[in-house]
Design a protein around this nucleic acid. Structure first.
Length: 630
DNA sequence: TACTCACAG
DNA sequence: GGCTGTGAGTA
């Protein structure tokens, strides 16, 4: 007799409830040294060549080939080169100050001896866009294979394999299956004929299934034998995740690590257990052994990696031998844990400083700890992480941002980045995403920061880089006039940090936005007579008339007289800034944007287009130099 | 809404 | 260690 019921089994066929079934089967898949892999593949190196991904002079991802030389992320390029003279350092793509597109400069980097081949944080900002794009491609494959996918970060996902396993278990057509699997039929027949009670136990697994060979590494058991249906489900899962991982390897070239287990937490520990290019299966009967293997302690778990975890180690007096069984054996119930922690807090006068809320509900914390130590901490997958805010940020070194003009040049970078990130998301969701709030924030000193938010004044129905920039410039100018003076902030420039963020997203169906904007008109009008461009113009005209505080120079609206006046300050400020900064003769080191900004009539350098992966967005007549023209 | 903090990759 | 990002809590 199985220890699982029909209810447990049928539950895994539900996309929403499967995770909570005792027969749940999830996976966590992690890209090995993702950034390094992306660069290795992009540049056509083999996986045996020691590629590292570089940001300025530090290494941010080390391929497994490079790890063989004992190179870690802590190494500088120089020390890594010493360990491995054949090292292949590849710098991330970068935005140049004043430009709203990124590009790769292969062969360039801050490690280069030749100053002309150096990328410096003073003039560039790292772009992570290439990794996001690859991440989306990979995600797309996961979604083809699996109905419930949680994108946990740019290089990792959780999968709920419930439906797949259920269907494969119950599959009617057995022609493609291994002979032993034919015996699933016994279960299937009972199911199909409805000869079961939800609360009755499943039959035992057939003898022939007990010796199936798992795909991948079964923790602690070289020749794991299958004893119950959970094992059979995990066997099916091990086969299926290998298919997924092989597909990703074959179509995109990426190697992955994978953990298969009952809960997200166990999956995550599993995928991290063996790297690279491996899958680890943690059977339910091996959970405790896995947790006690000596590699984990309480701080190994999600959300306990920081201060909270350390505090718990102190309070519970946990041994340093990295073992979870201590908790399991010392506190048999969640209540015992609650009592202990409460007493200990009183006894030691422990005062949690920042994570106060965690200790206000000790019972919840104790329950969590109790479950974690037994591998029973169950959480659902979140298939829809909706964007709340999006930020483009830059820490400024030295004099990277020393004037209002510099600020605007960096804002152009930020707008380019945010615009393309929003477009990417729109493609993924097939929705229109429109932020309603824009925030510019800056730091002049370690502890002195200012910020200003405002509504995004947009003139078309999708986000565009130019409108975003106009709003950003308005905000940065207001900050500049307010704080860049002796009284408010004597050491305003050079800024230490500048960032632009968008928030308050309105997420609309593409179809819906058209109807919202035009009512039934869209359906009635002839396509030729009312082309999209005309429609846009109509909106623009209508919008302009509604707003009294309209700036003819910028073509933007202000919400109030006060705002309008502040906006006018901006024009005065930029003129001033221009007169201070616009006299440089040598424009060789200036970006295209800055050249346009300072020398609008001058012919611009158009070389360097070769290594460009992404085409710059069309500039049209909306160049920001017009702010400075007479 | 503005701001800080914690946590993660 | 530098950098990017998110969510929770607070006032």
């Amino acid at each position: 007799m199985s220890k699982y019921t029909w209810r447990d089994l049928i539950k895994i066929n539900s996309a929403t409830d499967a995770y909570s079934s005792p027969l749940a089967c999830l996976a966590h898949i992690d890209m090995n040294a993702f950034f390094a892999q992306v660069e290795q593949i992009r540049c056509g190196y083999s996986k045996d060549e020691p590629v590292v991904c570089v940001q300025w002079s530090s290494i941010i991802a080390v391929s497994y080939a490079a790890r063989k030389f004992n190179i870690s992320r802590m190494d500088t390029i120089e020390s890594a080169m010493e360990k491995c003279p054949s090292l292949v350092p590849i710098h991330t793509a970068v935005f140049k100050k004043g430009e709203n597109f990124w590009q790769y400069h292969d062969g360039f980097g801050s490690w280069s001896k030749d100053p002309k081949k150096q990328l410096s944080p003073e003039f560039y900002k790292v772009s992570l866009d290439p990794y996001r794009r690859e991440s989306r491609k990979i995600l797309k494959i996961f979604k083809e294979f699996c109905d419930v996918v949680e994108k946990a970060s740019v290089d990792e996902v959780f999968l709920d394999l419930g439906r797949i396993c259920f269907q494969r278990l119950m599959e009617l057509d057995s022609s493609e299956r291994e002979p032993a699997v034919m015996n699933f039929n016994e279960l299937k027949d009972l199911f199909v004929r409805g000869k079961y009670d939800l609360d009755s136990k499943l039959p035992s697994i057939p003898e022939e299934l007990k010796s199936l060979k798992f795909h991948g590494f079964v923790f602690q058991e070289e020749n794991a034998s299958l004893t119950d249906w959970d094992d059979v489900i995990f066997w099916l899962a091990s086969k299926y995740v290998l298919e997924i991982r092989t597909c990703i390897q074959d179509t995109l070239g990426y190697s992955t690590s994978c953990g298969v287990a009952r809960t997200k937490m166990l999956c995550k520990l599993g995928s991290n257990f063996k790297k690279p290019d491996a899958q680890v299966i943690i059977l339910n009967k091996n959970i405790n052994a896995f947790l006690d293997c000596g590699k984990f302690d309480i701080t190994s778990f999600w959300t306990l990696g920081g201060l909270l975890g350390k505090q718990l180690v102190d309070i519970l007096n946990l041994p340093s031998n990295r073992s979870i069984n201590y908790i399991r054996e010392n506190w048999q119930t969640p209540q015992e844990l609650t009592t202990f922690i409460t007493a200990e807090i009183k006894h030691t006068n422990f005062i949690p400083e920042h994570n106060k809320s965690d200790f206000e509900r000790v019972d919840i914390l104790a329950q969590k700890l109790y479950d974690i130590s037994r591998g029973q901490f169950v959480t659902p997958l979140n298939p829809k992480p909706v964007v709340k805010t999006m930020m483009s940020n830059k820490n400024m070194r030295g004099k990277a941002c020393s004037s209002l003009i510099d600020c605007i040049s960096w804002l152009e970078v930020f707008c380019g980045e945010l615009d393309s990130r929003v477009k990417e998301l729109e493609r993924e969701y097939n929705k229109v995403i429109m932020p309603k709030t824009v925030t510019v924030s800056l730091r002049t000193d370690k502890y002195v920061s200012f910020r200003k938010s405002g509504p995004l004044v947009h003139r078309s129905r999708s986000l565009n880089s130019e409108d975003l920039l106009k709003t950003g410039i308005k905000l940065i100018t207001e900050l500049n006039t307010k704080y860049n003076n002796k009284q408010a902030c004597p050491n305003y420039y050079p800024l230490k940090n500048l960032n632009l963020s968008i928030s308050n997203f309105e997420i609309m169906d593409i179809q819906k936005t058209i109807i919202d904007m035009f009512g039934n008109q869209t359906q009635l009008s002839k396509p030729d007579a009312d082309s999209p461009k005309d429609s846009d113009k109509k909106i623009d005209d209508a919008y302009s008339k509604e707003n009294a505080f309209y700036c003819d120079i910028c073509e933007i609206n202000s919400a109030s007289l006060k705002e309008f006046n502040e906006h006018k300050d901006f024009h005065i400020a930029t003129k001033l800034s221009e007169s201070l900064n616009g006299t440089a003769e040598d424009s060789a080191n200036l970006s295209l944007g800055e050249q346009r900004l300072l020398f609008p009539k001058k012919r611009r350098d158009k070389s360097n287009a070769k290594s460009q992966i992404k085409k710059p967005a069309s500039k049209g007549n909306n160049n920001i130099f017009k702010y400075f023209s007479k």
